[in-house]
């Protein structure tokens, strides 16, 4: 495959160097509000991944016929359409999955990360690249959400994936919405620090 290298690059860029939460600092509302457990983070990540990939590909296909003045409404409509379609299809054919995923899918419409990727990437690049960029960004978002969820679930309720690992609840504060800000900010600082440290040891910059 000719695109093998670039597709891997696009995915790793979404997860690492341009992680939606820790690097681009987009879609912070769900990152703060929903990420109380690892499972919630994973669920929302899966939902975003699908909507991002479908929307990116759709916009990439129609990029030449979208009038530049109305591109933002078009993006919103595209995302809303995909969210509705996924919601309906899940409810109809996968009731088990819908019982768990339903509320997460319905949240998505106004997520900044999806609109931003459509604006920055999908409306300029080829269909293939847009697909991989969507996958990368979706995975990056999922990883970020799960990482925040991990910290908050462990420190807030002493559990990982609903399994009691500590046996006590260290700080209830971490489950509350305000703690989302602290965790996101501290983790952002942590990852930036790692990156700087890594670059210094490699002698870059």
């Amino acid at each position: 495959m000719a695109n093998d290298k670039s597709s891997m690059q696009l995915i790793s860029r979404g997860i690492l160097s341009e992680n939606p939460i820790f690097k681009l600092a987009l879609s912070m509302c769900p990152a703060v509000g929903i990420s109380t457990t690892v499972m919630n983070g994973f669920m929302l990540g899966v939902a975003v991944l699908f909507v991002q990939v479908f929307s990116s590909v759709t916009i990439s296909i129609f990029k030449n016929v979208i009038h530049p003045r109305i591109r933002i409404p078009t993006y919103t409509l595209t995302i809303a359409t995909w969210v509705t379609v996924i919601d309906l299809v899940l409810a109809a054919y996968m009731p088990e999955a819908y019982a768990k995923m339903g509320i997460f899918v319905k949240l998505i419409v106004a997520f900044a990360i999806i609109t931003m990727r459509l604006e920055m990437f999908a409306c300029k690049e080829s269909i293939n690249d847009s697909f991989w960029d969507g996958v990368g960004m979706g995975l990056g978002f999922m990883v970020g959400m799960m990482a925040i969820g991990f910290v908050r679930e462990l420190l807030g309720s002493g559990m990982i994936l609903g399994i009691d690992v500590l046996g006590f609840k260290p700080l209830l504060f971490f489950i509350l919405p305000c703690a989302g800000f602290f965790v996101v900010a501290l983790m952002m600082a942590f990852f930036n620090w790692i990156e700087i440290f890594y670059k210094r040891t490699k002698g870059l910059k």
Binding site: H67, I70, P73, T74, L77, T78, A80, T81, T84, V85, L88, V89, A91, A92, Y93, P95, Y98
Partner: peptide, 27 residues
């Protein structure tokens, strides 16, 4: 163009609704 886009989106959503409504009701 905006009207056409809206109509297209509405068509897709409407078709999807028609195709899935029976299964959804049953579930």
């Amino acid at each position: 163009r905006l009207t056409v886009t809206c109509l297209l989106a509405a068509t897709v959503m409407g078709l999807c609704f028609i195709l899935t409504s029976n299964a959804k009701k049953y579930n």
